[in-house]
C-alpha cells in the first residue's frame, strides 16, 4: 500500500503498524511524535496501530525555534 510520509509517497506492506513504518523509514524513536491523518497516535499505541491504506503520516520532532 502507498502511504504519504512527511509529504512523500512511499510503498509499505499492507497491514503495517506505525512502529513498522517508523522502522522502515529509519525514524528515531526519542523525541518524536506521530500523527496519522491528522490525529495523534500515542507512543504506547504505535506497535498495535495498523495504518490505513493511503494514510498521511507526519513524524515530527523538536527543532530550534521562537
Amino acid at each position: 500500500m502507498e502511504l504519504k510520509i512527511n509529504g512523500q509517497w512511499q510503498e509499505f506492506p499492507d497491514g503495517s503498524t506505525v512502529s513498522e513504518v517508523l522502522d522502515a523509514v529509519g525514524a528515531t524513536r526519542q523525541g518524536v511524535a506521530v500523527a496519522v491523518n491528522g490525529e495523534v497516535v500515542r507512543r504506547g499505541d504505535w506497535a498495535a496501530s495498523v495504518v490505513p491504506k493511503g494514510a498521511s503520516i507526519d513524524v515530527l520532532t523538536a527543532v530550534q525555534g521562537g
Binding site: 523538536a62 530550534q64 525555534g65 521562537g66
Partner: peptide, 8 residues
C-alpha cells in the same frame, strides 16, 4: 523549541 517534520 518548534515542532517540525523529522528527517531520517
Amino acid at each position: 523549541v518548534a515542532l517540525r517534520r523529522a528527517d531520517a
